[in-house]
Design a binder for these strands. Structure first.
Ligand SMILES: [Mn+2]
Ligand SMILES: [Mn+2]
Ligand SMILES: [Mn+2]
Ligand SMILES: [Mn+2]
Lengths: 219, 219
DNA sequence: ATACATAATTAGGCTCACCTAATTTTATTT
DNA sequence: AAATAAAATTAGGTGAGCCTAATTATGTAT
């Protein structure tokens, strides 16, 4: 019924919509999926015929309610598996994405509900991304990039905007973990770097590239 | 490199060889895989070209060392996942096979080694089937069908010869579990049924169909 | 040994999910 | 508005893994 290709397309459309808003273009999909644009045009016609997306020729696509629910369900599975891999199997947060990319396609509602229960109904995955419930509902996300904060603010590190292995390993090396308290001591106007104190102990200097990829909530 | 189809063929060849000995025929493969014999002929030529099987035209196929190792690795993964599903996720032994059929194809050596460790290096799966180690080695299997035992024998129930959901559920309903002690009180010569005592408590009458599918070791 | 039944292979074709090259549509410059 | 660049689509084609129908090989019965 639902192929691997179809699931990957729906997820990619969902994520691109989330990132850029509005319509998802053929070229953006081709880029993220690593597939030729001509092939993408073919495929989106097929899933548009199945009412999973609505397709405006030469404009782009958006998910239908049905398609969105399917995309969210795959994301739910991906994130639950990532939690399991880190919390139960001892993987690091930079090691789990590719394995979860495979596990997310395993089909069994009972499996996912049992996994969710086994994990204690986690709210977020190892990267701080929120896990939707079985009906596709997300909790309200109150996080924002650290760049939007000011000297004197006390915040909590809750997620990453950049999921690359390089960034995750940089944070690990720098001893910065999800849940850490960050106090902003100063912002350098010349290069937009932040001087922060982590967990009231270590003082660190974070470049603007790092700061914009740290998601935080007001403590 | 290795496709889903290829893994399923190798596993099917391995299991048919284990069950019937000698060469595996095209028709046997077609039957177990639910694929047309003509398609099987096509496919076995391809994997023979890859040196995963040796193929004697119109006779049948056998696994090469390389192919056997790959088949055993898939079986290892299948059985480890089944252990996890039963021991950690709360599934019953009759519910896990189809999910494991999917999970066995997930590719990550690290994942499987971490799973094995997490499970405490189990020796057998929920149906009593032995789990090969990472190098493809099986422990010596000393079990035999209960049919081969005699009145007065004390044995331990260690595995099933029939993995069907119907048989597994029959055993569950009859309150017979892996590890149970079975004392053979009498064998009825008319219909080859066995009168047994389970765990020194309940006396039960088992038909010859049941008895031949119960694998036991001498206690 | 011949006839018949069964198993296996060959020949030709299909769908899925991709590709390249050519063409058309849309957006941006001049 | 015309020229140019970029994006999208159309046209035609490929390999993987399946199919059916026809043919050939093998095994069994007479
Ligand atoms: Mn991920
Ligand atoms: Mn994640
Ligand atoms: Mn199984
Ligand atoms: Mn099993």
């Amino acid at each position: 019924m639902t192929s691997l290709a179809e699931e990957n397309y729906l997820k990619a459309i969902y994520k691109l919509h989330e990132k850029n808003g509005s319509m998802v273009t053929t070229s953006a999909l081709a880029e993220t999926l690593g597939i030729n644009a001509a092939s993408v045009t073919d495929f989106i016609k097929k899933i548009a015929a199945k009412k999973l997306i609505s397709y405006q020729k030469s404009k782009g696509v958006t998910l239908t309610d049905k398609g969105r629910l399917m995309a969210i369900n795959i994301i739910r599975k991906h994130r639950l598996w990532e939690v399991w891999l880190v919390n139960n199997l001892g993987f690091k947060w930079d090691e789990v994405h590719d394995i979860a990319e495979q596990l997310e396609h395993v089909v069994s509602d009972e499996l996912i509900e049992n996994l969710d229960k086994h994990l204690g109904y986690p709210k977020a995955d190892p990267h701080g991304d929120l896990i939707p419930d079985a009906k596709g509902r997300f909790a309200k996300n109150t996080s924002k990039p650290l760049t939007e904060c000011n000297p004197g603010d006390k915040v909590k590190f809750t997620g990453v905007a950049d999921h690359s292995i390089a960034f995750l390993q940089y944070l690990t090396k720098s001893n910065i973990k999800l849940g850490d308290e960050i106090n902003i001591e100063a912002v350098e106007t010349y290069d937009n770097s932040f001087q922060v104190k982590i967990n009231k102990k270590e003082t660190k200097l974070l470049s603007k590239e790092v700061v914009k990829n740290l998601l935080v909530v007001q403590a």
